Amino acid sequence: MSLSRCLHFVSNTRAVIVPVRFAHVSSTQVATIADDTPNFFQKLTSRFHGVPLKGESHAPVSMFENCNKEWSAPEPLPAIPKDFKEHPDRDLANYPYPARPMYPPKSRLLMMPDSWFTPFQKVTGVSGPYLFFGGLFAFLVNKELWVFEEQGHMTVGWILFYLLVSRTAGYKIDQGLYQGYQDRVNYFKGLIQEDLKDVVEFKKTSAAQTESLSAIKEALPTALKESMSLQLEATYRKNVQTVATELKRRIDYLKETEETKARFEKEQLLKLISDSVDKQINDRSFKDQYLQNAIQQLNGLKVQI
């Protein structure tokens, strides 16, 4: 389905082209084109041109607003200092650093460098370069020095594809690549700033430490002597504590040994006495002697009474 297009003749005049299949539309329907309410095709046309419709406060963004626009960086690229050398033997006179151009070189016919045309233009005029390159192309094709086979036709297609992409999406692509480049540069700048911040903090800390050492420089020998005395005193006390602990452990051992020895002797003595008494009790003569002694003691008690 073809779309209507608006052709600008004068400031307030527009000619509307209607498809053939809609030519039978009545005059009343055609008259509605000039009304305030746009029809379907006028809305599409307004959308393509970025013209706001009735009731819209903002103009719509056209999908073709970036077509055929050349992108340029918002700020110039930094130049290399003239006295910069990555090595003292670098020859800047014969081998200077390559300068990155700020903008792409000027071109003709959408893709041909302008530097190819300038030398001819000085001699042959404006049309000379076009005739030369056109004749050279015709000569190469005619003499079959450049065989224009089926693969050669693909070159034309690729050229057209390149022109189409570069003129439609090239602006957005360059803008996105530049933004990515700036983000990466800002990332590395952030790393450098963090390193510089750490260096500044280290410098401040070193200066404070230097000032503090300078302030105690005179009293440093006395402080070291007192610190050494405190360390010696702490070592002496630790050694004394170790000796006392070891002596107490040995004394406790000797005490426990003597107590164990006395307990063993007592147990053996009691056992010996108990065995002797049992032996004497079990002896018959001992029993008789014991009875006689008992009878004598009773008789003595009887006499006394």
Rank of each mutant, 00 (worst) to 15 (best):
Q29Y: 11
T32A: 12
A34V: 06
A34N: 11
D35Y: 07
D35G: 15
P38A: 01
N39P: 00
F41E: 00
L44I: 12
L44N: 12
S46R: 14
F48R: 08
G50F: 03
V51G: 00
V51M: 04
L53W: 05
G55A: 07
E56G: 03
H58P: 02
A59M: 07
A59G: 07
A59V: 10
V61T: 05
S62Y: 01
S62M: 02
E65R: 13
E65L: 08
N66K: 06
N66S: 10
C67P: 01
C67G: 02
K69N: 04
K69M: 13
E70L: 01
E70W: 01
W71E: 01
W71T: 01
S72K: 14
A73H: 10
P74Q: 09
P74R: 06
P74C: 07
P76H: 08
P76G: 05
L77K: 11
P78S: 03
I80V: 14
E86V: 08
E86Y: 15
P88R: 04
P88C: 01
P88W: 04
P88Y: 05
R90E: 12
R90Q: 12
D91T: 06
L92A: 09
Y95M: 07
Y95P: 00
Y97D: 11
Y97V: 09
Y97S: 02
R100I: 15
P101T: 02
Y103D: 10
P104A: 09
P104I: 04
P105R: 02
K106M: 09
K106V: 03
S107W: 01
L110M: 07
M112G: 01
M112N: 04
P113E: 09
W116R: 05
F117N: 01
F117E: 01
F120V: 13
Q121E: 15
V123K: 14
V126K: 11
V126G: 00
G128E: 03
L131N: 09
F132A: 12
G134Y: 03
G135L: 15
G135A: 15
G135P: 01
G135R: 09
L136G: 05
A138C: 09
F139T: 11
L140H: 08
V141S: 11
V141K: 12
V141L: 15
W146A: 14
V147T: 13
F148W: 15
F148C: 15
